[in-house]
Amino acid sequence: MGLYPAEIEQQAAAIIAAYRDLGWMVATAESCTGGLIAGALTEIAGSSAVVDRGFITYTNQAKTELIGVSAKGLETFGAVSRETALQMAQGALIRSSASVAVAVTGVAGPGGGSVEKPVGLVHLALKSRRGDVDHREMRYGDIGRDQVRLATVRTALEMLAQVAQRPA
Rank of each mutant, 00 (worst) to 15 (best):
T152R: 00
I15C: 14
A27T: 07
T57C: 01
W24G: 13
Q147L: 10
L160T: 12
D132Y: 13
T64I: 03
A71G: 05
R149G: 06
V133H: 13
E137T: 11
R130V: 15
V122Q: 00
I56C: 08
Q10C: 14
D146N: 10
L3C: 12
V69L: 06
A85R: 05
L74S: 06
G35H: 03
G144I: 04
H135F: 13
W24M: 12
K63A: 06
R149F: 03
A89R: 06
A98G: 07
G2M: 13
T28P: 11
T33D: 05
G144T: 05
G39M: 02
E75T: 09
A71R: 05
I56N: 06
L150C: 10
K127M: 15
R129T: 13
T59M: 02
P167Y: 13
A29N: 07
D142R: 02
F55C: 06
A151K: 10
M138T: 00
A27W: 05
H123L: 05
M138N: 10
G106V: 02
Q10G: 14
E116K: 03
L36G: 07
I67W: 04
E158D: 15
Q147K: 11
L157M: 10
Y19W: 11
K63I: 04
E75D: 13
V133Y: 11
D21I: 04
G35T: 01
P118S: 00
Q165I: 14
T28H: 06
V148D: 03
L150Y: 06
A6G: 12
A27Y: 03
S99E: 15
V163L: 14
A62T: 01
A45S: 15
T33N: 00
R145S: 03
T152H: 01
A168K: 14
S47N: 11
L157V: 09
T105F: 00
V115R: 01
Y4N: 11
Q61N: 02
G34N: 00
T28L: 10
E9V: 12
L93S: 09
A18W: 05
L124E: 12
A98H: 02
E9D: 14
T33Q: 01
G109K: 00
T59F: 02
I67N: 07
A125P: 10
A89M: 09
L157I: 08
A108R: 02
A14H: 12
K117N: 01
A14S: 15
I94M: 08
E43L: 09
L36T: 02
L66M: 12
H123P: 07
G23K: 10
A49T: 11
R130D: 15
A62C: 00
